[in-house]
Structures are given as structure tokens and as C-alpha cells.
């Protein structure tokens, strides 16, 4: 578990980061909390001749809740998300989800930027960001651009981010209504066997809108438009939930691994989504 030799860069600003990226192309990678990247390097599954540490780069931190919008800098850690009271009030699903990621030690290091940029289908934040319809901000040689979380993921470890771009932050509208992040895992520190992020709004007895995203059940996070649509306009009865679950099941494509065979994962994801919808609806 010793990584191949690499060059360590520690620029003071984004300009410095971009220039190393420009010089070394895909031989260079940025390092945030390192809790996904460093294990991959130690297993020699990732070969990174040039490692660019982001920790001295200014402007990548901070949690802002203002004017109905929430903005998180890329280097905000999961621990900071959990600790932030304003955020917990404005978007409680973030704390609920973060508390289900890894363990406190990992959460002190792991960042939102690393989690969403990584492209590992096991990461929890991408699905959550899709549920919240977040926007990612990327900066590269040609300046800044924005891209929707729902458009970002292409395949395992493949995203819309170009090799020479850095993700600087995520933003989304303050969510309303009920929420739930439900996750089944084998143990603390494990990625999801199945996880569901749900936000539901309610108008009297009727569901006025629902957003549903699933984690680790395909090679990307799955935003299931159809599942949300199946609930919208209904009274979220058992049969409405059945319809949403059915819609979700036709969107996911799990594979067999040590967490279990496909049949089990499909069953578990249905159970988890049911529970998430029920909890979110009860909070709406």
C-alpha cells in the first residue's frame, strides 16, 4: 500500500493550480481531503505523477445561506456541514446525509467538492445534489462555467468536468417541504448498499412536487424524474408510493458485488425508497 512516486504541488491560489494543470494535463490531479484519492493511489489504482494540494488555495471554503440560495465552497468538509446550524435549518437533509457518510475521522477530511467531483457511484453527495437540483461551478483555463448536478455524471469516475478544470463550489435553492436521506450499509464506514434522497413539498393533503435520487445503484447517481412525477399530485398513499418505487426501479441498474446480488439490491432499494418517502412526507 505504497503509492508510486509523485510530485507534490501546493499552490497559493487558483491561478497556480490551473497552471500546474495546464502544464501536466491528465498527469495532474487536485487533492482535497484525500480520503478517496489517496487510497486509490496507495492501491496503485490511480497513477498521479503530479498532486496539487488545494488546502492553501483561498476562496474555496465557506457556507453561505442568503437570499434563498445556499452556496458551499468546494473545500467545505462533511464535518463543517454537520456543524453548521444555519445550514441545518435551511437544508436539514445535508446534515442527515452527512451523518451517514463514513465516520467522524473521515468526515473531518472529506470535502463536498471531492465527494461530488470524484465520480464514484458510491459517494452519497452526488445523488443528494441531484435531488436538490444543485449547480456546480467549475473554473478552468477559459474561465468559469456552471453545470447542473443532474447533467454532471456520465459513468463511474467519468464526469462532465474537464481534466484541467477545478470545481470551486456547489449551490442550490433553499429546499422546502419534507426531506429524508435513507441509507442501508453493512457497517460504519461503508458505502451504500442502497440509498435514497427525497425532498417533497406538500399542498394540503396533496404532494405538490417531489425529487428523488438514488445512490450506488448504477454506475452514476440516478435522479429518477419518473419516481418524483409519480408522487406529484397524489396524496402519497401506499399505491402512489408503489408507483414511485416502480418508476425508480426501472431507472436503476445495480450490479452484483460483496453487498449482494442484483435481486437483493433491487429489493433493498425499493424498501429504502419507501422509507425515505414515508419519512419525507411525514415531515412535509
Amino acid at each position: 500500500m505504497i503509492p508510486a512516486a509523485f510530485e507534490y504541488h501546493r499552490p497559493k491560489d487558483m491561478e497556480g493550480v490551473l497552471s500546474v494543470l495546464a502544464e501536466h494535463g491528465d498527469d495532474a490531479r487536485v487533492l482535497a481531503g484525500g480520503h478517496s484519492l489517496i487510497p486509490m493511489m496507495k492501491l496503485r489504482m490511480a497513477d498521479v505523477p503530479h498532486l496539487i494540494d488545494l488546502q492553501d488555495v483561498g476562496g474555496l471554503g465557506g457556507i453561505d445561506v442568503a437570499d434563498g440560495t445556499i452556496r458551499l465552497g468546494a473545500m467545505v468538509t462533511q464535518a463543517e456541514i454537520i456543524a453548521h446550524e444555519g445550514l441545518a435549518k435551511a437544508a436539514p437533509i445535508l446534515r442527515e446525509a452527512s451523518l451517514q457518510i463514513a465516520d467522524p475521522q473521515v468526515r473531518y477530511m472529506g470535502t463536498i467538492g471531492g465527494n461530488v467531483a470524484n465520480g464514484d457511484p458510491g459517494n452519497d453527495m452526488p445523488g443528494l445534489m441531484q435531488c436538490l437540483d444543485a449547480t456546480f461551478t467549475l473554473v478552468g483555463a477559459d474561465g468559469e462555467r456552471q453545470i447542473a448536478a443532474r447533467e454532471f455524471y456520465q459513468a463511474a469516475y467519468m464526469t462532465a468536468r474537464e481534466d484541467d478544470e477545478v470545481l470551486t463550489g456547489v449551490s442550490f435553492t433553499v429546499p422546502s417541504g419534507g426531506y429524508a436521506y435513507e441509507k442501508q450499509k453493512r457497517k460504519i464506514g461503508d458505502y451504500a448498499t442502497a440509498a435514497a434522497a427525497v425532498q417533497i413539498t406538500r399542498d394540503g393533503e396533496t404532494c405538490s412536487g417531489a425529487a428523488i435520487a438514488m445512490t450506488n445503484l448504477s454506475d452514476t447517481p440516478i435522479f429518477s424524474d419518473a419516481a418524483g412525477a409519480a408522487l406529484t399530485g397524489t396524496q402519497v398513499t401506499d399505491s402512489d408510493i408503489d408507483a414511485a418505487v416502480k418508476a425508480m426501479l426501472s431507472d436503476i441498474d445495480p450490479t452484483e458485488d460483496n453487498r449482494g446480488p442484483i435481486e437483493f439490491k433491487r429489493h433493498a432499494s425499493a424498501v429504502i425508497l419507501r422509507r425515505a418517502i414515508a419519512r419525507a412526507w411525514s415531515r412535509a
Partner: peptide
Amino acid sequence: HDHWRIWKTANDLGLH
């Protein structure tokens, strides 16, 4: 007796 094997036991017994 991890999750999926217990699930399978229940499944084989027709409990789902």
C-alpha cells in the same frame, strides 16, 4: 449472516 444472505433466507421462505 450478512444482510443479503439473511434477505435471501427470508426470500426463500416466501416472506417477501
